[in-house]
Amino acid sequence: MSKLMNWKELPPCDTLAAKTAEAFETGDWRMGEKPVWHPEICIHCMICWISCPDSSVTVKDGKMTGFDYKHCKGCGICAKECPTKPNKAITMEKE
């Protein structure tokens, strides 16, 4: 853990820089299952990306590139919403 600031080192007025959660691992309590991406099936529809409550679907140039497991909580919404048939491009698998 980084060194704790004393009160004189704090940013003014109980403010913080924005987007600090990016640097903080919030996915460390994910239990049981994690989403696994199958790129050969994926049609890059972005339904998983827009459905993810934790912005954990990583995307580059409009194409899905996988998951950010540092922040993914394993809720399974992406796998549930994935529309490809007969096989899904995202499946939940044991950790």
């Binding site: 704790l4 600031m5 704090l10 007025c13 109980d14 403010t15 913080l16 924005a18 987007k19 600090t20």
Partner: peptide, 16 residues
Amino acid sequence: PTTVGALDLTDYYFEH
């Protein structure tokens, strides 16, 4: 951009 009024527990409430 700033985050305002974030959660402070035993580690930072006192300092704030």
